[in-house]
């Protein structure tokens, strides 16, 4: 097992004993961090190869709303509803991804097409207010403690689920990282024409990673919905969520396994910390500082936090070796 894998394992072991340590609010925070860390990792699967999607908010939204709607209107268990949501997210990813990759919609244009996609999902959810409750949000019918409904009032259950989700996201990352596709994808991100010339099926590789990323993101959205028991179009879809995903992943660093997780840890504890600090007296103050920090972070740490740390350590290591 590599050093990274070992540290991930150590972190997981640490995470397993953490919930016993703190109050319920702490656990709530931890669950959110784990769920979003999985979504950010899912985004980074694409993002690290330069396929910058501003549309992942759409996949979170689809993944969260489909199981909740099926549950309320048809009494269908989330065990079926969640795969249905993932299937729909995959369908959306293919419908948007296939023409994009086929017609070589890249760079700014790809970012903005996917941006439009996240707005389409947001506005559809708002417009279908008779079914989804529109901007007022949507609450799945409560069923108490139920495996069938995948609803647990005790947070520990969701903590374990979120932990498993997170580990799944990390293993998918490892799987891509270790496979032959990684080299193909890296070649594509360097130069699509050259990659195609050496026999890489550019379209297939891009579509595959997009579908994987979208499915994992939708799963994250579904778990988030099941946990929160309240969905709002603004908080699970649209540009704001898409930007939040891209920000946190980039801030943490998309080129390392734990980068997106660090991004989730920092951004969520920062927003929560600022929110608690300022309370209700200065609405907006927390986000003002958050926004300013984001800008500073992008300007001064373009490699992300984990990338910057690693570089700093790499720069120090030879010096230390020379000193010995």
């Amino acid at each position: 097992m590599s050093r990274l894998g070992a540290s991930a394992f150590a972190l997981a072991a640490l995470a397993a004993v953490l919930p016993a340590a703190g109050p319920a609010y702490f656990l709530h925070l931890l669950i959110q961090i784990l769920i979003w860390a999985s979504v950010y990792t899912a985004w980074a699967l694409m993002g690290r190869f330069g396929f910058v999607s501003f549309g992942h908010g759409a996949f979170v939204g689809v993944g969260a709303y489909v199981p909740a709607l099926l549950w309320n209107y048809f009494g269908l268990t989330p065990w079926v509803g969640i795969p249905a949501g993932i299937a729909l997210a995959i369908l959306v990813a293919v419908v948007i991804g296939y023409p994009c990759f086929r017609l070589r919609v890249v760079g700014h244009y790809f970012a903005l097409v996917t941006l439009a996609l996240s707005q389409v999902v947001l506005l559809t959810l708002v417009a279908a207010r008779e079914i989804t409750g529109g901007s007022l949000g949507f609450t799945p019918k409560a069923a108490g403690h139920s495996w069938y409904a995948l609803q647990f009032p005790e947070k520990t259950y969701f903590y374990v689920i979120a932990l498993m989700l997170w580990l799944l996201a990390l293993s998918v990352w490892r799987w891509i990282d270790g496979g032959i596709n990684r080299e193909a994808l890296e070649a594509i991100s360097e130069d699509e024409d050259a990659a195609a010339a050496i026999g890489i099926d550019v379209l297939r590789e891009k579509l595959r990673i997009t579908v994987l990323s979208a499915a994992l993101t939708a799963l994250g959205g579904a778990i988030y919905g099941q946990y929160m028991m309240y969905l709002n179009p603004e908080s699970v879809s649209g540009i704001a969520v898409s930007l939040q995903i891209v920000f946190a992943a980039i801030a943490g660093g998309v080129y390392s396994l734990l980068g997106p997780t660090v991004g989730a840890l920092l951004t969520i504890s920062l927003t929560e910390g600022l929110r608690v600090w300022f309370g209700v007296t200065f609405i907006g103050a927390a986000n003002t500082i958050y926004g300013a920090l984001l800008v500073l972070c992008i300007i001064f740490m373009p490699q992300g936090i984990v990338g910057t740390l690693r570089r700093a350590m790499a720069a120090r290591a030879p010096k230390a070796a020379a000193a010995d």
């Binding site: 700014h108 609405i283 986000n287 300013a292 300007i299």
Partner: peptide, 27 residues
């Protein structure tokens, strides 16, 4: 400061400004 960075970083820097302006106006 980000003129020579990757385009995605430029997008995000102005995206951070978006967050900042909206929240500051709220404040």
């Amino acid at each position: 400061p980000v003129l020579n960075s990757a385009p995605i970083n430029q997008l995000l820097a102005t995206g951070g400004l978006l967050f900042f302006l909206q929240s500051f106006a709220t404040l």
